[in-house]
Design a protein around this nucleic acid. Structure first.
Lengths: 215, 215
DNA sequence: GGAGCTTACGTACACCGTACGTCCGTGGTT
DNA sequence: AACCACGGACGTACGGTGTACGTAAGCTCC
């Protein structure tokens, strides 16, 4: 049985899989080659270098976001849905997410989400400049949220160690931190994400209303 | 003249300097040692390993944020000031910023900003749970913004290449992206940051008002 | 003067990305 | 059928990396 021929797609897929299983640090050309049962240098017939491979990983992960857009829904609901869809990658590919957000892509892979988001915001009545600003704000918030969510999970195994140990901080120096340590230690990522998301949506709704009012 | 003895502080400072001059990729134990005119292994007398060194870099950069807090100012102004202070590191240490935001610190280095922020939010009348949520939202937004700001400047030299080339996208497939390409290509980071910041502040102001109203 | 400590340093090992040369199976041409 | 050109798989090799380990030089205290 002739093994399926090597291809960029198979290599990227193996990299994604490896990252998800053992973390980004485990990725090396030799490791990926071994994973595919192939010589190291064979990879270079399909991928110019490691950096390009990781870009491929980021693009592939990004392109797997499932956007289900309902054009009939209220624009606030559509924004909500799109933001949540983005966050899904943190669930499907927690270890890969760090790669996606910390690597700016100069390709067209991430263009479709941008297109959808802009269309939604335009349909809400924002002009081009405002739509772009809103989009950037949402992306910043989403990226920052994902970073916290996956950053706190560098590896899956160890039970979440307290980031701020209540015993370790001097209540005299840090009264707020120490009195709120219980709240700071626990974090329901989904709830936190939704809280900020709702606030943002409310904010741009108000922004829209203000513009309408002064028209 | 006996050269000043090696120390963790000198090593971290050299690393920060090197990162700022040549980027994070240039950092290696050998390079830092050479920079200090010292043997490679001498570093390990003061730093357990490279990872810890980079944590030290992140902590040091973070601790150099200059917070000027005016307790008499309105809480919205204080929030604004603190958020802007955070963003300053992107100006002072653009290359190091990526390190700071992509590395979650389990130390107490970043505790002082947190303490100040919580105190400010509490003084605005938020209860503990809300204050923590607000703080997390702000941090997510700030981190995401900084990531965009410094991510777009991986190196300083090359003139900003268009991320989305107007000629490269099919207007039929991506009508919004292509018609807004001029706006998408340029980005005044400070203006964008402030725009989102104001929106966020307005949002939590409204949130506070709502709670007051229903009290 | 020695004992014990901290610190600087050289060597060595396993691993990394990848440039380069070689080999082989396949398809098209004569 | 014989040939050849070519693309893909692969081995070897080089310069770089983090760091474990052993050694040696200075310091302080008995």
């Amino acid at each position: 049985m002739p093994t399926e021929p090597l291809s960029r797609g198979r290599i990227v897929a193996a990299a994604i899989d490896l990252i998800e299983r053992e973390g980004a640090d485990a990725v090396s050309m030799r490791r990926i080659a071994a994973e595919l049962g192939v010589g190291v240098m064979s990879l270079y017939n399909h991928v110019p270098n490691k950096d390009a491979l990781l870009n491929g990983v980021a693009e592939t992960v990004l392109s797997q976001i499932e956007f289900t857009d309902d054009p009939d829904a209220h624009w606030t609901d559509r924004v909500r849905m799109q933001a949540r869809a983005f966050r899904q990658i943190a669930h499907h590919y927690p270890r890969n997410t760090m790669l996606v957000v910390s690597r700016q892509l100069h390709s067209a892979a991430g263009l479709l989400p941008v297109e959808r988001a802009l269309a939604t915001l335009r349909s809400a009545g924002f002009d081009g400049a405002d739509a772009v600003r809103m989009l950037r704000m949402f992306i910043a918030y989403i990226v920052g949220s994902l970073l916290r969510e996956v950053g706190v999970t560098p590896t899956f195994a160890p039970v979440q160690t307290r980031t701020i140990n209540a015993e370790g901080v001097d209540p005299a120096l840090f009264p707020e931190v120490s009195s709120l340590s219980a709240l700071l230690d626990e974090c329901d990522h989904e709830a936190e994400f939704d809280f900020g998301l709702e606030l943002l949506i409310k904010a741009i709704e108000a922004h829209a209303g203000r513009r309408e009012g002064t028209r």
